[in-house]
Amino acid sequence: MEVRTIKVFTTVDNINLHTQVVDMSMTYGQQFGPTYLDGADVTKIKPHNSHEGKTFYVLPNDDTLRVEAFEYYHTTDPSFLGRYMSALNHTKKWKYPQVNGLTSIKWADNNCYLATALLTLQQIELKFNPPALQDAYYRARAGEAANFCALILAYCNKTVGELGDVRETMSYLFQHANLDSCKRVLNVVCKTCGQQQTTLKGVEAVMYMGTLSYEQFKKGVQIPCTCGKQATKYLVQQESPFVMMSAPPAQYELKHGTFTCASEYTGNYQCGHYKHITSKETLYCIDGALLTKSSEYKGPITDVFYKENSYTTTIK
């Protein structure tokens, strides 16, 4: 009895394709271990004539594949690729409408935090270190965002349907971005203890939790000093293409032309909904596939993004 075979390709990165001759009487799992086709788990399936010449994702289970996976995804987590594939199996079914010149995501599976993050990423200057993220990001900007969303979920250790947080998501993504040249110098002034300067680099240099107003941050924000008295913390120097200011959701007025974009969060910790506000020729609110415009805006804002380049204080 002759062994019926077909020729397929296996890959971990969709760049390096490895030619395989597979036995049609055995499952993919018996031949390769966990195997995925377009995100779908085909591990328990036997090869079919229609699979001839198709590319299958496999887990990096030998040295060659491990090197290829690390170079593309910059992670050695053995569960990463499987999590990416199972997320992709959902995100490829989502709709990605162009809204006001940006790629958004039609609401499904509690994905409003991903839509808000995706919209924000198209408006701030950011370059990702893992080629996987950078490639998928370019495709997302062009309207094909399924891979990018699935990668975000995998890097953030999230599953489809789980509630997510924009600030946490951005923080994970910033860790995989090139923020080497970003720098922030802060000064804390206390009447009792004097003053202390701190220099922050990388992710810490672009994120701040405690106030939404970048102007206020430049002037000074009140913080408790270690001595128990009130101290003032203010920005001395900022070198970065953008800054992200966050605070627990509270009524906040966004003035046209003073910011790049913002995240609105309605609801409580267990259950809520994100919308995205962007400042173009007027203010726009993007909620999944829905767009509304207004000249002014007041609502429960939790993150505001500002364009920056270089700032030095005039406070002496």
Rank of each mutant, 00 (worst) to 15 (best):
V3H: 14
K7I: 07
V12E: 06
I15P: 09
N16R: 10
Q20I: 08
M26P: 08
G29S: 09
F32W: 15
I45W: 14
I45T: 11
K46Y: 12
K46Q: 12
P47D: 08
P60I: 07
L65R: 08
H74G: 12
D77A: 06
P78G: 12
H90T: 11
K92I: 11
K93Y: 05
T103M: 04
I105A: 02
I105G: 04
A108V: 05
A108P: 00
N111T: 06
C112K: 02
Y113S: 05
L118E: 07
T120D: 05
K127W: 04
N129I: 06
P131L: 03
Q134H: 11
D135H: 12
R139H: 10
A146Y: 06
N147L: 04
I152Q: 03
I152N: 00
L153F: 04
C156E: 01
N157Q: 05
K158G: 05
T159E: 15
V160E: 07
G164S: 04
V166H: 10
R167M: 00
L173G: 04
L173M: 15
F174H: 00
F174I: 03
H176P: 01
N178C: 09
V188L: 09
V189Y: 07
T192L: 09
G194R: 02
G194L: 03
T199D: 04
K201N: 12
E204H: 09
S213F: 03
K218I: 03
K218Y: 01
K219Y: 05
K219N: 12
V221S: 03
Q222S: 12
Q222T: 10
I223S: 11
P224W: 09
K229R: 12
Q230P: 12
K233F: 04
K233G: 09
Y234H: 03
L235H: 02
E239C: 10
V243P: 01
M245V: 04
G257M: 04
N268K: 15
T278K: 01
T278F: 04
E281W: 07
T282F: 07
T282N: 08
L283A: 03
Y284L: 15
C285N: 04
G288V: 00
S295Q: 15
E296R: 09
G299Y: 02
I301T: 03
D303K: 00
Y306P: 02
K307A: 14
K307M: 08
I315Y: 15
I315K: 15
K316L: 15
